[in-house]
Simulated scan of single mutants.
Amino acid sequence: MTLTLVFILCAIHVVCCYPTAFQDLGESSQNRTSIKFLAIGDWGGLPYPPYITAVQKATAQEMSKVAEQMGADFVLALGDNFYYKGVNSVDSPRFKDTFESVYTAKSLKIPWYVVAGNHDHAGNVKAQIDYSQRSDRWKFPAYYYELNFHIPNTQKILTIIMLDTVLLCGNSDDFLDGQPKGPLLTAEANRQLVWLQDRMARSRADFLLVAGHYPVWSVSEHGPTQCLLQKLHPLLNKYKATAYLCGHDHNLQYIEESGVGYVVSGAGNFLDPDVRHWKQVPEGSVKFFTGQASTLGGFIHAEVTKNKMIVTFYQAKGTSLYRTVLSQRNMEE
């Protein structure tokens, strides 16, 4: 047990966070004034043949169509990338079976910015980080990291802070009550929290997004994550975050509270219509929910312009379900 803890501690120290830099959107950004991306969680197939689900396949196909028609600069992969126990090494065939061989369209050959979920932490997350050296599009530089983008042909900035909510709050057992039991390494959880607060306090981005695996608010099976309500929720409010994006519950949700948009996009592989925690979120905050099998799966498309962020929820069977508009941060209030 001691050796295991030492190994994890060393691995996290090596890849705990990522130097701040601006991402290059390439030549395609020269004649436009927005950034577009997809976000999907819980897309990680199955650990036995055929290694994918019907929902994952249908969702991948619709993602490719939306990316081609609406445009997408990158994808946010919000955890549970490989069911049920992540991967065991960088040589795992699951990278090919569940990722490379599924999201094959040219429109999806774009950067995938990745965070780990609870199922990934049941395996070797460092192997997923290392796979960044094997794939042109798999971008997982550290357990948690920051992405910065210049919105093309404007003076505006989009920042996305990618969190490891499992390191922050602990792992969870989906077959029990689903709430994380506290971090395995308290010092590393605190290190991430200090880093997060520092990055949010320093941020002058016009749009500030935070992304992780566990939800802050959710009406579904896992419900609100108490750890994140204590540690993250106050920071989202204090520093006027635009939105928080996550997965974990296997459906699509949009909840709006205290000016922050809470996006649950966990319908990439399974679907769950469970709403057992509907009364555990602020009254009137739920704007949209679906987990119906008839959708065949789902994801979100976001467009960030110089003065607003448009979020559209898509179902895999080919139509949009809900759209909302978020304003840029007002740092002077």
Rank of each mutant, 00 (worst) to 15 (best):
M1S: 13
M1R: 11
F7T: 04
L9A: 14
L9W: 15
Y18W: 04
P19R: 01
T20Q: 13
Q23D: 00
G26V: 03
E27V: 00
S29E: 04
T33M: 02
S34T: 06
L46A: 09
P47M: 10
P49T: 01
V55M: 07
A58W: 10
Q61D: 09
M63T: 03
M70V: 02
F74N: 09
L78Q: 01
G86A: 04
N88A: 01
S92C: 01
R94S: 12
E100G: 01
S101V: 03
V102I: 11
A105N: 06
L108E: 00
L108G: 02
V115T: 08
G117S: 11
G123R: 01
Y131K: 00
S132D: 07
W138H: 04
H150M: 03
T154W: 08
T159C: 00
I161W: 03
L163M: 12
D164P: 11
T165S: 13
L168I: 15
D174R: 09
E188P: 08
N190C: 09
F207N: 12
L208P: 03
L208G: 03
Y214P: 10
P215G: 01
G223H: 12
C227D: 08
L229Q: 11
L232C: 08
P234C: 02
L236P: 05
T242R: 11
G247H: 15
H248Y: 15
D249K: 06
H250K: 07
S258Y: 10
S265R: 14
D272N: 15
P273A: 04
D274H: 09
W278I: 08
E283R: 13
K287V: 11
Q292G: 13
I300Y: 13
T305S: 13
T305P: 06
K308A: 14
I310W: 08
F313K: 10
L321C: 05
